[in-house]
């Protein structure tokens, strides 16, 4: 039933789109029919073009996200465990947080060229703050009463961190990772649209220059689909890593936020 509910709106949009194409309500050159887009997707997949661009983009996202984790997690732990350092970083990080990564693309291309380094830098800028801020919040908001348990039962500061603070902050860390992955995926596509020679963003911009709206639509749908798959896989992984929380602790869907 849940799947049927989820498929209702896409089905309505698809039906409307197909009807518009069938009755000639839209220019078929600008708005290709769903059947035409599906045929293009199948052709791109069979030739390995779609998979190749997707693999390039996914490789960049995971590499960039890994590098982000290596930077953001230790810094969040350092500040979370040494609150007196926070005033030194607070203003700078809040300033940087408000700069959209895409605004840095021109500068990054000037500094790093259009190769992989500039894409990785964009991903790091996009994923850093969700990961860093959520990890910091998880550590800072660790229930003081649980820390007291460690204190009474003779835990060393290291044991208190590894056995109490870190596991207690895991739901928040995982939420930050999930948000960071989503942000980095979106930022990467933006970067590939501007300067790249491979990747799903590049496929879209190249199709625009070749006047192939069907390929553009395939690219857009592939971005959404793979973004959804990554997010879903991460949610399932989180539920396995955090069995005591259920799925809602790391779920930032509209319904879990009370928006629906």
């Amino acid at each position: 039933m849940k799947i049927l509910k989820a498929l209702l709106i896409p089905a309505v949009v698809l039906a409307w789109w197909q009807a518009a194409a069938a009755f000639g309500l839209a220019n078929s050159y600008l708005v290709p029919s769903p059947a035409g887009v599906a045929a293009t997707a199948a052709a791109l997949w069979q030739k390995g073009i779609l998979a190749g661009h997707m693999a390039t983009s996914l490789g960049r996202v995971f590499a960039g996200f890994g590098l982000t984790f290596l930077a953001a997690f230790p810094l969040a732990v350092l500040l979370g465990m040494n609150r007196r350092l926070i005033p030194y970083f607070d203003a700078t990080l809040h300033f940087l947080r408000h700069i959209p990564p895409i605004a840095c693309i021109p500068l990054l291309i000037l500094w790093l060229g259009i190769g992989e380094a500039s894409k990785l830098a964009i991903i790091i800028l996009a994923a850093f703050f969700p990961l860093f801020l959520n990890t910091l919040a998880g550590i800072a908001q660790c229930d003081a009463r649980l820390i007291e348990v460690g204190q009474v039962f003779g835990f060393t500061p290291r044991q208190r961190f590894l056995r109490i603070i870190l596991p207690a902050s895991l739901p928040s860390v995982v939420l930050g990772m999930r948000l960071g992955l989503g942000y980095s995926w979106r930022a990467l596509i933006g970067a590939e649209l501007i300067a790249a020679s491979a990747g799903i963003g590049y496929m879209i911009i190249e199709a625009e220059q070749l006047s192939r709206p069907d390929v553009v639509i395939v690219g857009i749908l592939a971005i959404g689909l793979f973004g959804y798959i990554i997010d879903y896989a991460f949610l399932k992984l989180a539920a396995r890593i955090l069995p005591w929380t259920g799925e809602n602790e790391t779920d930032d869907s509209f319904s879990s936020k009370g928006a629906l």
Binding site: R145, V149, V152, F153, I164, P167, A168, L170, L242, W244
Partner: peptide, 16 residues
């Protein structure tokens, strides 16, 4: 001496 404490609330680690 080793001291243990039982608090007003159980204070069990929710992830264990």
């Amino acid at each position: 001496a080793r001291i243990a404490m039982v608090f007003q609330e159980p204070r069990l680690m929710p992830w264990l």
